[in-house]
């Protein structure tokens, strides 16, 4: 039965739609991310060429000295300008100062970030490493819903039940021996797994584009070396990314069950797509600073969050056990709701 349910779902237009979505996702992920930083990425990269490797007291001292040197140059600027105006220093001396001043102005925000990084390393303790982590930090900080996955999943899952209603085949299925419970459970499982796989594939494609653009040399560095990720000690960047993709894929799988429930209630593909879009995608657009009770109701809200918001002990308010509980309850409610509405007799 599963074989034929998969066949129903993966028609040629659907396969082409999936391939198109993956291609678009890959292309978009190959473009550099336009994220604003408090520091210069170029300067940071230059410093990382000097500093990369284990964080030591010497490296901290160097950063501190750099900061003091730049602060001194910047603070001397007005005085030097006055001296030049009063012919106390020569033009060459003033030029030399100006060069240092401009360099300090360009670099000081980056050095400040490096000092922040040192403080973070001191705070978390243990062995910490410097490396050029901006690209990874950008990749991991990407919040919000994946619109391509959203469109694909909503369009395809909406058809799983609603097509049976619109074509009239539900009547024939329901009068079969396994037509009530087994058939609906089979459809639910297919929807759950399909949404999971699509979301995971989109994550993989995004990662492929990232590797093509930024390389793979830091994939095995520890995610705790990134500011804000101290809760995930011992996990590599790649592993953390994979966990994030799984986390979102599980939520998408639950969303797929929600879409199934909507289609069983409204019995119409277009309405199902519309309602699912509003309830999942629009809910995800309503941003919040922290996880609230509202997020437990609307799965789309969970999709909009970064795993660190939920699992990070220092920032999140929702713990892993509660998250699992929410997922389990939603799966049960949507699943039983679907089975009931699918098999019930019309009145």
């Amino acid at each position: 039965m599963i074989k034929y349910e998969i066949k129903k779902l993966l028609t040629l237009p659907h396969i082409l739609l999936i391939l198109l979505a993956l291609a678009v996702g890959f292309t978009l992920s190959c473009y550099p991310r336009n994220i604003d930083h408090s520091y210069s990425k170029i300067v940071y990269k230059d410093y990382m060429e000097q500093l990369s490797g284990e964080y030591t007291a010497d490296k901290k001292a160097f950063i501190q000295s750099e900061y003091e040197r730049m602060e001194k140059i910047i603070s001397e600027h007005d005085e030097m300008t006055e001296k030049y105006k009063n012919d106390i220093i020569t033009l060459e001396e003033y030029d030399e100062h100006n060069f240092s001043y401009n360099e300090a102005q360009a670099k000081i925000s980056t050095v400040e970030y490096l000092m922040e990084k040192c403080s973070y390393f001191d705070e978390i303790g243990g062995q910490c490493y410097f490396f050029y982590d901006t690209d990874w930090a950008d990749l991991l900080s990407e919040n919000g819903i994946d619109y391509i996955a959203a469109i694909l999943i909503i369009l395809m899952i909406a058809a799983v039940f609603s097509d049976e209603y619109s074509s009239g085949s539900r009547c024939m299925i329901l009068t079969a021996y396994k037509g009530k419970v087994s058939a609906s459970v089979c459809k639910l499982c297919i929807s759950f797994i399909f949404a999971f796989i699509i979301s995971a594939c989109m994550g993989a494609v995004r990662f492929g584009g990232f590797c093509l653009q930024c390389g793979t040399e830091y994939n095995n560095m520890n995610v705790r070396d990134l500011i804000g990720y101290s809760a995930f000690s011992g996990m590599s960047l790649f592993k953390y990314y994979v966990c994030g993709v799984i986390f979102h894929s599980v939520i998408w799988a639950v969303c797929a069950l929600f879409i199934c429930l909507v289609s069983n209630i409204v019995k119409n593909g277009i309405f199902t797509v519309f309602i699912s879009f509003v309830m999942i995608v629009c809910a995800a657009l309503l941003k919040a600073d922290r996880v609230t009770f509202f997020d437990l109701i609307f799965s789309g809200r969970l999709l909009a969050l970064n795993p660190v918001d939920i699992f990070g002990y220092d920032r999140g308010s929702l713990k892993f056990v509660l998250f699992i509980l929410v997922i389990a309850v939603k799966t049960a409610v949507y699943g039983f709701g679907c089975i009931y509405t699918w098999g019930r007799r019309r009145r």
């Binding site: 039965m1 034929y4 066949k7 129903k8 028609t11 040629l12 049976e164 619109s166 074509s167 009239g168 085949s169 539900r170 009547c171 024939m172 299925i173 079969a176 021996y177 396994k178 037509g179 087994s182 058939a183």
Partner: peptide, 21 residues
């Protein structure tokens, strides 16, 4: 109107319902 699946072969429709039954 049984609403069978247009892209299924006749044999597939039979097999699908055979599993259901």
């Amino acid at each position: 109107d049984p609403g069978f699946y247009p892209n299924f072969r006749g044999y597939d429709i039979m097999m699908y319902f055979a599993r259901l039954k």
